[in-house]
């Protein structure tokens, strides 16, 4: 007598990724036990650009640091290209709110830093840095020091440094927040152009709805205390997008739509109701 084979599939390990960046039931608590992020589920496909927006204190930056493997999660799992973030660091780059350049290094040597830390040989990394600088239009200031540059130029150097390692995933923590609006718009356009060339996956934290709409395939709206995914809004404008998009009525509508959602999240919080 043979037992019928149970009609059960091989159990799938929950760590099997379907996206380039995969967060499952991610919870992060502070040392005192109060949650920063609670039950975050998020899947980001390869070469997708996703913005994360939400009130301050919703753990946007913490989420980015979790993906970067710069902070430890309390429970759940984070996978980047199927492996733990710490093991995927080599394929990621991180951009901070300020340019975080080394003031004692020239622009060229600043761009070389990321490849230098990866152990790339001197001649090769110089070549890459030169290429990246021309890509962001800064070849002529390669031998100047950061203090001689404007805020927008410094940020461009930071972009060039981040892209020098040819990352698969680019993590950006409000990279343009400190810039004036005009510069920010210009850098947004540039970022889209660079993405079209580099085909990396983008995870972008911002406070600006318009910026998020302009850049993203998808916008994730987080609620605060604890941070959790409240809305997952696709943005349907086709690529390539250019400055002209901002003037279109549909763009305005999309910005209003997202803003409403964001406001909803914030008001519910004010009234003390659970979102």
């Amino acid at each position: 007598m043979t037992l019928p084979l149970p009609n059960i599939q091989e159990p799938q390990p929950i760590t099997t990724p379907s996206g380039q960046v995969e967060l499952r039931a991610v919870t992060k608590r502070y040392g005192n036990g109060s949650p920063v992020l609670e039950d975050i589920n998020l899947s980001i496909a390869e070469s997708e650009f996703v913005s994360i927006i939400g009130p301050s204190g919703c753990g946007k930056s913490t989420l980015l640091k979790l993906v970067a493997g710069l902070t430890r999660l309390s429970s759940g799992s984070v996978r980047v290209a199927g492996v733990e973030p710490v093991r995927a660091r080599k394929m990621m780059s991180f951009m901070f709110q300020d340019a975080t350049l080394l003031p004692w290094r020239t622009v060229q040597r600043n761009v070389e830093l990321s490849t230098e830390l990866h152990g790339v040989k001197k001649a090769e990394r110089a070549a890459i840095a030169g290429e990246m600088l021309s890509l962001v239009g800064l070849s002529q200031v390669a031998h100047q020091f950061p203090r001689q540059l404007s805020g927008g130029m410094k940020m461009r150097v930071s972009i060039a440094r981040a892209l020098s390692t040819r990352p698969k995933v680019l993590l950006m923590d409000e990279p343009f927040a400190a810039l004036d609006e005009l510069t920010r718009d210009r850098l947004n356009e540039e970022l889209l152009r660079l993405r079209a060339e580099g085909r990396w996956t983008g995870l972008f934290v911002t406070h600006s709805v318009a910026e998020a709409v302009f850049l993203s395939d998808r916008i994730i709206v987080l609620a605060a205390q604890p941070g959790r995914v409240t809305y997952d809004l696709p943005i349907h404008f086709s690529f390539p997008r250019n400055a002209e998009l901002r003037l279109r009525a549909e763009f305005e509508e999309a910005v209003i739509e997202v803003s409403k959602n964001l406001r909803g999240v914030m008001e519910r919080r004010k009234e003390g109701k659970e979102p």
Binding site: K65, G69, L70, R89, K90, T100, L102, L117, H118, G119
Partner: peptide, 14 residues
């Protein structure tokens, strides 16, 4: 030292 720069070194630690 700037915490973000330390993070940068950590991220690119090879």
């Amino acid at each position: 030292t700037d915490k973000n720069l330390v993070s940068l070194f950590l991220m690119h630690n090879s």
